[in-house]
Design a protein around this nucleic acid. Sequence first.
DNA 1: CGAAACCAGTTTCGAAATTGACTATTTGTT
DNA 2: AACAAATAGTCAATTTCGAAACTGGTTTCG
Lengths: 173, 173
Amino acid sequence: MEEELDFWSFVELANRRLATEYGFRHQLATEVLLTLNRASDLVTYDLEAAVHRPRGRSWSAFRLLFVVWLAGPLEPKSAARLTGMSRAAVSNLMKPLVADGLLDRVPDEHDGRSVQLSLTEAGRAEMVSVFREHNEREFGWTEALTEEEQRILVMLLGKLITARAGSDTRSRR
Amino acid sequence: MEEELDFWSFVELANRRLATEYGFRHQLATEVLLTLNRASDLVTYDLEAAVHRPRGRSWSAFRLLFVVWLAGPLEPKSAARLTGMSRAAVSNLMKPLVADGLLDRVPDEHDGRSVQLSLTEAGRAEMVSVFREHNEREFGWTEALTEEEQRILVMLLGKLITARAGSDTRSRR
DNA sequence: CGAAACCAGTTTCGAAATTGACTATTTGTT
DNA sequence: AACAAATAGTCAATTTCGAAACTGGTTTCG
């Protein structure tokens, strides 16, 4: 009766017990979301450990730099929305990045309360260099799927997200 | 030229700039993983905020109780593996849960270094009650997809996870 | 115009997770 | 049998992040 459960046999066990012993109705929902979270955790942890930590950056710092890089000069509020972080998190992350000379932070001309974030030249250079490695490792994850499978995956996840976005879900402030 | 980007238009913008301005090759990989992480974040944040925080438990505490509940008496090491947390995280999480009388922690009979975790009667009762609400809210997320779509989603995510699991990925220690 | 409501960003503080060191036990080797 | 290496769990230090309070600028409307 040796167990030595792994993730997949645990999901199976959970399914069985939730249904037969406790009579819960939505095991497939549990299975979908367990798998979703596990996949996201694995990928994120791998990219952070393999690409970003060795260069002295956190996963969150990368995400912030990434949106500022590609979405041009940006208010912190928009950066928070695009990354899914809170405004406070953006504000805290900014400090060391500005100090390291990757991020520029200039007062907004039209709104004295606000601020515009952009990458410095050094920041752009670092993102180009980091993203090369990041993107290769991303590819290492997704190449297990055909292109069509990847498109289906994006479509299904999109459906999951947007269906709920309309209802009572609050996004992170 | 008003922007007001949201997540989807940002993904589109990122795709375009990464391809045309910087010549990166694997935009679809980026799109898949951005969407994956966003979906996972949204779902997790929603469940934590709607179900678990109001009851005074963190998302991580719930995950730990969940695996101990369903995978029976368990060593901390196994609990860490199944939840994807580090052993230290499990050890830290355990303390308040034992103090609150939800978790039992008894020395292992066959290995003096180890320990067996199980739910107390109160712990079991709380999980049954919490999971009722949790599962209903999970269903609220997944019901946007047909049952077949959900099975495809699980299958694709499984493919993503297991293909890479064999290679040089280190799981969290 | 001026007060009140509102909104943007920051700061502070607390919760939680990871890394690495440490203790105790077990396993493997000679 | 003895000792080295590996393993389990815990603890301490550091990092990260968010909630809530706070500061200051902007808009609304009498």
